[in-house]
Write a protein that binds this DNA or RNA. Structure first.
Lengths: 138, 138
DNA sequence: CTTGAAGCTCTAGTGACTAGAGGTTGTAGA
DNA sequence: TCTACAACCTCTAGTCACTAGAGCTTCAAG
């Protein structure tokens, strides 16, 4: 049996975050000692590991809830799980696309200015003031 | 002179967002009609355009505040503006790095599973349960 | 002069935590 | 067995950048 602090150390999830996950229903309520402190077993450890990993991959709490539901109903097809993962992938790719455009723009903006001179003709500021200078969509 | 709605249309910034920007001090308080409605001039339009563009590029409200300060003190060196832009670029690049790793992982996870079969051996779920399956750091 | 779209302020909600106050419990050492 | 104190508890509020809604007032066209 682990205390919440030990669970935290083993998973790398902060103590208040673990309590938060319980509060929003991601983790089932932990058993308690007589003095009302949470105690976890190996099962709890694994569930939190799953959540941690999914969060690291950018899945939302809502998506993780759905995935945990699926885990607990092994009779259901895993098509749903695959869909959730693919939605997440599409999301990540969209973010990559946007960030790549931003990178291009920021490089252009940063390089135009050597940091000398006064800010009334600063390239960074004039570039931000006028979208028409941009080379990519964003 | 524009109403807040006209300003919104011209810049693509929603009306409540404009009021929010004023509230947090990004936009100086607009002049008002006798009936207490906001009226903007060309200056306000340009300032909001600047904010809009900088937000699109992912700059935080705080960073934009600093940039606007610099605009209003043209005597100060633009080195600070360049630093802010380069910080933002570093930030974007870090996000790109992480998202690229996530993409790799998600492709691997999604492709391992064809959506058939039941979820007790679903590759998506087992992959999420065990970080050791991963090929990249995240 | 009427109507209704557009404006106003204020409060509260979003997601995923994080921080802090103020109190209680568990446990290691004396 | 006692004591000290780290770790635990609950609850509220704050973060960021908005967004939504209630309930009211003003503007402008017909």
């Amino acid at each position: 049996m682990f205390s919440i602090g030990q669970l935290s150390k083993q998973t790398g999830v902060k103590v208040p975050t673990i309590r938060y996950y319980e509060q929003v229903g991601l983790l089932v309520s932990a058993g308690r000692t007589e003095g009302n402190q949470r105690r976890y077993d190996k099962d709890g450890l694994e569930r939190l590991g799953f959540i941690r990993h999914a969060r690291d991959l950018g899945f939302s709490i809502e998506a993780i809830s759905a995935l945990i539901d699926l885990q607990q109903h092994p009779d259901r097809s895993c098509q749903e799980a695959t869909e959730i993962a693919q939605d997440q992938l599409a999301d990540v790719r969209e973010k990559l696309r946007r960030l790549t455009a931003l990178e291009t723009e920021l490089v252009r903006i940063s390089e135009g200015c050597d940091g000398d001179g006064s800010s009334n003709d600063c390239y960074v500021l004039t570039s931000l003031a006028d979208h028409r200078h941009c080379r990519t969509e964003h």
